[in-house]
Amino acid sequence: MTHPVPPSTDTGAPAPPASRDGEDRSARIAVTLFPAIIIVAFLIGFLFPAQTAPLAQYTSVALGIIMFAMGITLTLPDFALVAKRPLPVLLGVVAQYVIMPSIAVALVFVFQLPAELAIGVILVGCAPGGTSSNVITYLAKGDVALSVTMTSVSTLLAPIFTPLLTLWLAGTLLPVDAGAMAMSIVQMVLIPIVAGLLVRWLLRSWVARVLPALPWVSVLGISYVVVAVVSGSADSIVEAGLLVLLVVVLHNAFGYMLGYVAARLFRYPERVARTTAVEVGMQNSGLAATLAAAHFSPVAALPAAVFSVWHNISGGLLALFFRARSARQEKAAAQQPTVQS
Results as ranks from 00 to 15, higher is better:
S231L: 04
I160N: 12
A145F: 03
V93H: 09
W216A: 08
F48H: 13
V217T: 02
Y138S: 09
A213G: 11
G255W: 02
P212S: 11
K84T: 12
G196Y: 00
K331G: 07
G232H: 11
Q336C: 01
R325N: 15
M257N: 04
H295S: 00
H311V: 06
L91R: 04
A118C: 08
D10H: 15
V230L: 08
V249G: 04
D78N: 14
M67N: 00
T172Q: 11
I66D: 04
A15T: 14
T2H: 03
G259A: 05
R328V: 15
A18D: 15
A208Y: 12
L117Y: 03
Q57N: 10
D78C: 09
M67C: 00
T59F: 13
A293W: 03
I193V: 15
A41Q: 05
P7D: 14
L174V: 14
L146S: 03
A95T: 09
N134V: 05
P163L: 11
V238P: 00
A56T: 11
V105G: 10
L318T: 14
L242Y: 11
Q112P: 02
V249L: 09
L258H: 03
P4V: 14
I119R: 12
V82D: 07
S60W: 05
S19D: 09
V105D: 06
R264H: 14
T275A: 01
A288S: 14
N284E: 12
L164M: 12
A56I: 10
Y58D: 05
A62F: 00
S154N: 12
Q51V: 12
V108S: 10
L258R: 01
S102T: 14
L242C: 15
R85A: 12
L87N: 08
A30T: 06
P101G: 13
Y260F: 11
G92I: 02
R200C: 03
L146P: 02
F254I: 15
V31W: 01
P6F: 11
I65K: 00
L220W: 07
M67I: 00
P49V: 06
A15H: 15
V40M: 13
V5F: 01
P77F: 02
H311S: 08
P16F: 05
T275F: 03
V93W: 04
S147D: 08
A333P: 05
V299S: 01
V153P: 12
L245C: 11
V124S: 06
K331W: 03
A182K: 04
T52P: 05
L197G: 15
G130H: 07
L302I: 03
A140K: 05
P14K: 06
S231F: 06
R267E: 14
V339K: 05
A69M: 03
S308I: 04
Y256Q: 08
L146E: 01
S218R: 03
V105F: 07
A118L: 08
T338D: 06
P212Q: 14
Q51Y: 15
G259Q: 05
R204H: 10
A293P: 01
T11V: 10
I222C: 09
Q96M: 10
